[in-house]
Design a protein around this nucleic acid. Structure first.
Length: 424
RNA sequence: GGAGAGAUGGCAGAGUGGUCGAUUGCGGCGGUCUUGAAAACCGUUGAGGCUGUGAGGCCUCCGGGGGUUCGAAUCCCUCUCUCUCCGCCA
């Protein structure tokens, strides 16, 4: 959620930056600012009323102590009137605040000034690419055939146990999952991230804090008996660790990593490009999260991009890094880089990571602040996160790109984790 | 699930209707003393909002929400959580 002070002090800039996301926010921003003026006036009126009321109450208290109860009658009468008045004024203030809230919650985050304008994924900009495109034999198979051939991932069985999009990993398929998770976590830990294992269900406040609620309610599985939500990404519980916190400026940046399964209903997204591992309802992911000082947050973002890039390189996968255009960015992001790996048998790029800076957008909802050393003042921190990495499409790419006559060759760097060199 | 107790400032812990945003201790910060440090002593030390050029003034917040009252940390209702005992259980 954007702050009113930002909208007030940088009105033109906010309108311009929101245009990058193809949003004309002129009307709603001016409505918000008008309401905020009304809010301030209402606040002042209420405060004055309460101050007068408090004075009468103190006076009554003193008279009572002196045993002059009879003399307090007139003050009581006055105070009662002020008390009634304050209730009306408070309702008015609450009503105005509600109106502001309704408008401001609907405004998406302002994109970074460098974000390209655009509407569709075609307008995303390739920042750089790397890795070797594999040359596959004539009879190369897509991963959904390979997993059946080697009996390592079983969709039919998952379908029996739960439903579509919940595969069962078997044998070397299961072990490959575990190997990748450990490999990703070790890389993150070596890069200075602290590992946490968060809950996989979160409450409403957490869902609101990172921006899943109320808008994207339909994307999460909801355990209605207890009103908990299954996490769509570790970003939700890990970022919410800092909800309602004021951290010391000297601690920044704070870097956390977590492996979790992720649960997504993918309502409305089903039907296209969903074969095999391309889109699942439950998948594994290692997430990296940073809480940063506003001054340095874009350096942190670049650091996270480099971190993800190094992992993809170590796995020997052909990749490219995209800077998302305004139209393809998420509601909460200021700047997002997507990582895609090339899946040779499908002959298409698969998104495996998304690394974003949210600036103060999430922090404002979370009330996540840091205390500046010099000024001793608290201010909203910046939050960032990224996948490092999401497993299924990485697995798909490894399977397809590394298929040989002898079976599927495990990337060198993973062998210490898998303790086998081929899936055959 | 049953019974009981509790939730107060960074922490510990007072406060059971009235000048209480809250005694006190620890911790933190500043100072005196010291070559330096420790000890001792003195001072200071929550968050947010409104207002003012500023100094300052005012308002709200004692787990969340609601109520009683001129006035609530304190009384009532409700929810959540924690602890103890019992039951069940990985």
């Amino acid at each position: 959620m954007l702050t009113i002070s930002y909208l007030r002090n940088n009105t033109d800039e906010a309108i311009q930056r929101l245009q990058i996301k193809n949003i004309d926010a002129r009307d709603s921003i001016s409505a918000i600012l008008n309401l905020d003026d009304k809010r301030k006036a209402a606040q002042t009126t209420l405060d004055n009323c309460l101050a007068a009321l408090n004075n009468y109450s103190k006076e009554i208290g003193i008279l009572m102590k002196q045993g002059k109860a009879d003399e307090s009658a007139q003050a009581k009468q006055k105070a009662a009137e002020l008390s009634d008045e304050s209730k009306v004024l408070r309702n008015n203030l609450v009503d105005i605040e509600k109106q502001i809230d309704e408008l401001i919650v609907k405004l998406p985050n302002v994109p970074h000034i460098s974000v390209p304008k655009g509407r569709t994924p075609e307008d995303n900009v390739v920042v750089r690419s790397g890795g070797q495109m594999p040359v596959l034999p004539e009879n190369a198979k897509p991963h959904w055939d390979l997993i059946t051939q080697y009996d390592i991932i079983d969709f039919e069985l998952g379908n029996k146990l739960t439903g579509a999009g919940f595969p069962v990993y078997k044998g070397k398929g299961a072990k490959l999952q575990r190997a990748l998770i450990s490999f990703f976590l070790d890389n993150a830990i070596d890069a200075g991230y602290r590992e946490v294992i968060p809950p996989l269900l979160v409450n409403e406040a957490s869902g609101f804090g990172t921006g899943q609620l109320p808008d994207k309610e339909g994307q999460m599985y909801h355990a209605t008996a207890d009103n908990y939500y299954l996490i769509p990404t570790a970003e939700v519980p890990v970022t919410n660790i800092f909800r309602d916190e004021i951290v010391a400026g000297a601690q920044l940046p704070i870097k956390y990593t977590a492996y979790t399964p992720c649960f997504r209903r993918e309502a409305g997204a089903w039907g296209r490009d969903v074969r095999g591992l391309n889109r699942l309802h439950q998948f594994d992911k290692v997430e990296i999260v940073q809480v940063a000082n506003p001054e340095g947050s874009y350096d942190r973002l670049e650091e996270m991009v480099s971190h993800v890039e190094s992992i993809v390189q170590k796995l020997g996968l052909p990749y490219r890094i995209l800077k998302l255009c305004g139209g393809d960015m998420s509601f909460t992001s200021s700047l997002t880089y997507d990582f895609e790996v090339y899946s040779a048998a499908q002959q298409r790029w698969l998104e495996v990571s998304s690394v974003s800076n949210f600036e103060t957008f999430q922090a404002n909802r979370l009330k996540l602040r840091y205390r500046d050393e010099a000024t001793k003042k608290s201010a909203l921190a910046h939050t960032l996160n990224g996948s490092a990495l999401a497993l299924p499409r990485i697995v798909a790419a490894i399977l397809e790109n590394n298929q040989t006559d002898k079976g599927i060759k495990i990337p060198e760097i993973l062998v210490p984790y898998t303790r086998f060199e081929y899936i055959n």
